[in-house]
Design a protein around this nucleic acid. Structure first.
Length: 117
DNA sequence: AGCATGACGAACA
DNA sequence: GTGTTCGCCATGC
């Protein structure tokens, strides 16, 4: 594995994975929202990094994580360029032109969802 | 050590 | 409302 992670961001990665695993099927969230939830507000890019490394973790629904406007920016990192969109559609998420329809409606904010009882 | 890049996001112009 | 710039922080060259 080319990625050699320091203890610091290794912990960060694990936290990201934990949150991503909690995303319900048919819902989506953003990199920034996860970063914000982890109190690393300006580390949205690091969340994307974590997802890139999520290849080692088979139970990470990375397709449910898109950018702040609902764009499937990570589609190219899947097996097939269309894989991410297909996975979302199979869960009932409408996707058109790599953009999640009704993104704000399907948006799953860990900050809210995990704090509210 | 410096420079470029990236699954991002917010602030400006 | 669109395009550009900057901040963020880890990685690769």
């Amino acid at each position: 594995m080319a990625l050699v992670l320091s203890t610091k961001n290794k912990d960060f990665f694990e936290q990201v994975y934990q949150v991503v695993r909690l995303i319900p099927s048919g819902r989506v969230t953003s990199y920034g929202a996860i970063a914000n939830y982890l109190s690393v507000k300006s580390a949205a890019r690091m969340v994307g990094w974590a997802m890139n490394a999520s290849h080692a973790h088979l139970d990470i629904p990375a397709h449910r994580v898109v950018n702040r406007i609902g764009l499937l920016t990570g589609q190219h990192h899947f097996d097939s360029p269309n894989r991410m969109q297909e996975l979302l559609i199979s869960e009932g998420v409408e996707v058109e032109n790599n953009l999640v329809i009704d993104f704000t409606k399907l948006f799953w904010d860990p900050m809210l969802e995990l704090n509210l009882d």
